[in-house]
Design a protein around this nucleic acid. Structure first.
Lengths: 234, 234
DNA sequence: GAGTGGTCTAGACCACATA
DNA sequence: ATGTGGTCTAGACCACTCG
């Protein structure tokens, strides 16, 4: 493990175990450098990482301070990559509805940058949160990246499988959101009245090479579709 | 202007004016260092900044590549700080509905960390996009940070006023989203049928000191509430 | 193996906040 | 005036990709 990663982890643990309030001042850059016997730049790298994650904020001339997200039943849009990790503190269950190899339509091809003949795995799943319908998830994985997928894998975390078994390097994602009325079939699947609203999230996930390897369309039950995003001004 | 900021700007301009495709390879770190006659670290700092903004991605051992957002009628949730800058390419107009000094309720006090007696400016505005109702915006600014506000300012960009005239240092923001059905009065304001869905965005914006200075509640017309978020895995 | 990005150093100097 | 974070350097060495 890299030095700065260890420091990031230590500080994060320190904040959590001591349940520090937003605005609590941490040690100075120099103090941390001495404490860990590393150069100032390494501390700065660690602090920048924590700032990117929304764990702290830094104020020039003044110090390093704790930043806290306060509504914790909200899904973090920035770290949301599947549910297995993100909503670990909730009871999320998965129901596999369909798993097959198919030739995708134009929309999917465009988002995954596929040629007309290329095949994909189609996965349709239902996510439940504490026994209630959370969302419908429809995913497409090009066969050229994910040559094999079975029911057992699809019942668990496909992302973990892709990262660990296939050793693919997941790098970045684009997420698009909009709101609309549910179709009747989707309302039924989510156990909601007809014409209920829903949040639609389209997501394209890319490998380190820049190639898209997952296009997913999620339809959220509006009752549980609570998201948050933390941003910095610089 | 700092060296790395200049480089960020140059590269961003280069990508835009040449309309480079996603995946286009840029120069190597070393080449840029030579070209600008700066150290490698300065280039890395510039590239990290671009990566944070979602303009590029870097692959160790391979190079630096262009990253592009492809659906451009979507509002970037990460840079969204008011509309004046964000949706510059659309025709956004503002209608001031109400502007007054008041003592806020518990919800607002909590989000702005105010004592019971502290007063705020209450601003209610309607945003239109190309002549159509985009959203209702209700904002609260503590008087201790924003001692004066008038109709003229509220008709323009309050954020620009706060940053430039009051010289307050806007630093970071937390945004919370959820979906629900519009109230009848809100549906009327947005010129939508009763029981239309809507996206609700609550936003707390903080100064560099970590003090919250704005709590805003936005109610989006679902027809125009399209958002996107770009994220990195590290 | 050559070339690429990433980590890390030790230190100079700058910009800013606070008292 | 002091202490804080931020910029920048020159260079060593590491980790990864790809031909």
């Amino acid at each position: 493990m890299k030095k700065y990663e260890q420091i990031v982890q230590d500080i994060e643990t320190y904040i959590n175990t001591n349940q520090l309030e937003q605005g609590t001042r941490l040690l100075s850059v120099e103090s941390y450098a001495k404490q860990y016997d590393v150069s100032k730049s390494t501390i700065i790298k660690a602090l920048d990482t924590l700032e990117k994650r929304g764990s702290i904020f830094q104020q020039r001339g003044s110090g390093v301070f704790v930043r806290k997200q306060r509504r914790d039943d909200y899904i973090n849009l920035l770290t949301n990559r599947g549910f297995t990790k993100e909503l670990a503190n909730f009871n999320i269950t998965t129901q596999l509805i369909k798993l097959e190899v198919m030739t995708p339509n134009e929309e999917v091809r465009h988002n995954l940058k596929l040629e007309a003949h290329e095949e994909v795995y189609y996965v349709e799943r239902l996510r439940n949160i504490d026994g209630n319908r959370l969302c419908i998830e429809v995913s497409y994985f090009p066969k050229k990246f994910v040559p094999y997928l079975n029911q057992e894998i699809a019942n668990g975390s496909i992302f973990t499988y892709i990262a660990e078994a296939l050793k693919l390097n997941i790098s970045f994602a684009d997420a698009y959101l909009h709101v609309d009325i549910l179709s009747n079939t989707d309302a039924q699947k989510l156990e909601l009245p007809e014409h209920s609203p829903a949040l639609f999230l389209d997501q394209v996930v890319y490998l380190a090479t820049g190639e898209p390897f997952d296009y997913s369309k999620l339809t959220y039950n509006y009752k549980y579709s609570k998201f948050f995003v933390q941003s910095m001004n610089h």
